[in-house]
Every structure is written in C-alpha cells, then in structure tokens.
C-alpha cells in the first residue's frame, strides 16, 4: 500500500472505531435516570462518558487525517446510516439490564484484546488513544464480568434473562472477528489489529465466565454481519435520527 492509501485506510479505521464508541455510548447514556438504582445511574454514566470521550478522540484523529476542514461533529452528526461503519451489536436497543450487561461483557472482552494490540500500533496517535482506552476498558470489563455473574447466579428470573440476552446477542459477535481487506492490510502494515487472532482467547474467557455464572454459550447456528460496510439493522436509523436531530435542524450553527 502506498503512504497515501495507508493514510486513507487509517482514516477509515479511525472512523469505524469512532462510530463503535459513539453508538455504544449513545445506548449506554439511555440508562441515565432509568437504572435499577441510583449507584448504577452514576456507574452507567461513567462508562457512557468513556465511550463518548473515545469517539471524540477517534473522530478528532480522523479529522486530522482528512484535513479537509471537517471536525468531529461533522463525522458524528452529518453522516447517514449507510456511512456509519460500527459493528451491529452496538446499535441494538439497550433492552433490559441483563441485555445491556451481557452486551458490555461481550464487547468489553473484545475491546480488551483489541486495545492491547492497538497499543502497539506504529501509528502513534492510535497507540496513544488505545493506551488511554485500555485503562477504561479494564474497569468496564470488571463491572460487566461481575454483573453477568451476579445476574446469572442470582434469581431464576435473572438467570433466564441473562441466558436469553446471550442467545439474542450471540449471532452478532461473529463479525467482530472477521476483518475485511482494509483491516487486514492495516494489520499487516503494523497499524491496525487482525481481529481473527483475538477470537480464541475471547471464547476461552467467556467459557470460564459462563461456567462461573451458571450460563452456557449458545450454538454458532446463526450470524448477522454487515456493520463495517454500512449494512445495518433498522435500529441504527432511529438512533441516528435522535442523535442528529437538533444538529441537523439548524444547519451550520455553533453550539
């Protein structure tokens, strides 16, 4: 890949990672004033804030690479469903508290593997963002692990809900470990991460945790893919409509 192509690909990667963080942060922020008790409102807001902060760092870097006058908000507020390249699992509605915590577990575990690799990127900015995000993710994972064990090993109802969430989410996890050509090229160039390498450890950790929580990992009998190419579920349109509504209603304004 030429340097120019590489830069273009890095820009696309930064946008993908920014989209991932923004969409999940948006979903988590919906818990504020809706959590099971006050301490959780505060804790969920902290995690949401970490993801919004992460989105701003990735978009900020994308703006720097694009160097065409666009800023973080242009990426977040002025792109459409088809232009967002986040993973599908992140855009699914927040569901109940079990759904949210199981999704967090799946994603936090993925992120901890991913960020540990991205820390070593030869792209200094991505490596720095990853180093910061890694600290946050260690805490996120601690929380989501404990919640899934607590809910799995709680009441009959909490166990049922947690297992059900796992079933509903499982088919969306496969694409996390299926890098497209662009991501593979970036990994080869020492910039990105080959996520295929992360799956074995991810699966192993999950199996141990499921045992502890009295849950079982679902069969791999379905898979939905498409986030990285902008082929989304119907949920993303609604999410973006809400997220972008005020910004788009007053074109060109400062806030």
């Amino acid at each position: 890949m030429s340097e120019d192509d590489l830069q273009q690909a890095t820009l696309e990667l930064a946008l993908r990672l920014g989209d991932d963080a923004l969409v999940l942060g948006q979903r988590l922020s919906e818990w504020v004033s809706n959590a099971p008790y006050l301490e959780e409102d505060i804790a969920c807001a902290n995690v949401a804030l970490d993801f919004i902060g992460r989105a701003r760092m990735y978009y900020g870097y994308a703006a720097e690479l694009a160097a065409d006058g666009r800023c973080e908000d242009d990426f977040a507020y002025l792109r459409s469903e088809r232009e967002f390249h986040n993973y599908l699992i992140l855009e699914l509605p927040r569901g109940d508290f079990a759904f949210t915590q199981v999704r967090q577990l799946l994603v936090d575990l993925y992120n901890s593997g991913f960020l540990a690799q991205l820390c070593r990127s030869r792209d200094a900015t991505l490596a720095a963002i990853a180093a910061k995000a890694m600290k946050e993710t260690r805490y996120h994972l601690r929380r989501s692990r404990e919640w899934v064990v607590r809910l799995g090993d709680g009441t009959e109802e909490s166990k049922r809900r947690t297992q059900q969430a796992l079933e509903e989410l499982w088919g969306y996890t496969h694409e996390l470990f299926e890098p497209d050509t662009l991501e593979q090229q970036l990994a080869q160039a020492g910039i990105g991460v080959d996520t295929r390498m992360l799956k074995a450890h991810w699966q192993q950790e999950l199996e141990a945790l499921a045992r502890e929580a009295g849950l079982h990992l679902p069969q791999n009998d379905w898979a939905v893919r498409g986030g990285r190419t902008g082929y989304h579920t119907e949920n993303l349109g609604h999410l973006l409509m809400e997220l972008q509504s005020i910004h788009r209603a007053y074109p060109g304004c400062q806030w």
């Binding site: 807001a45 949401a48 701003r56 908000d73």
Partner: peptide, 20 residues
C-alpha cells in the same frame, strides 16, 4: 441522546450524572 455536539453531549452527561 440529542445534544447538538459531542462536547455538549459529554458535558451534559457529566452534569446529569452529577445530579444523580
């Protein structure tokens, strides 16, 4: 979920969290 910029979203989230 509707704050018109990412900076405003972060600030508002921190603010509402403070209320909690």
């Amino acid at each position: 979920t509707r704050a018109p910029s990412l900076r405003r979203k972060a600030v508002l989230l921190a603010k509402v969290q403070d209320e909690a």
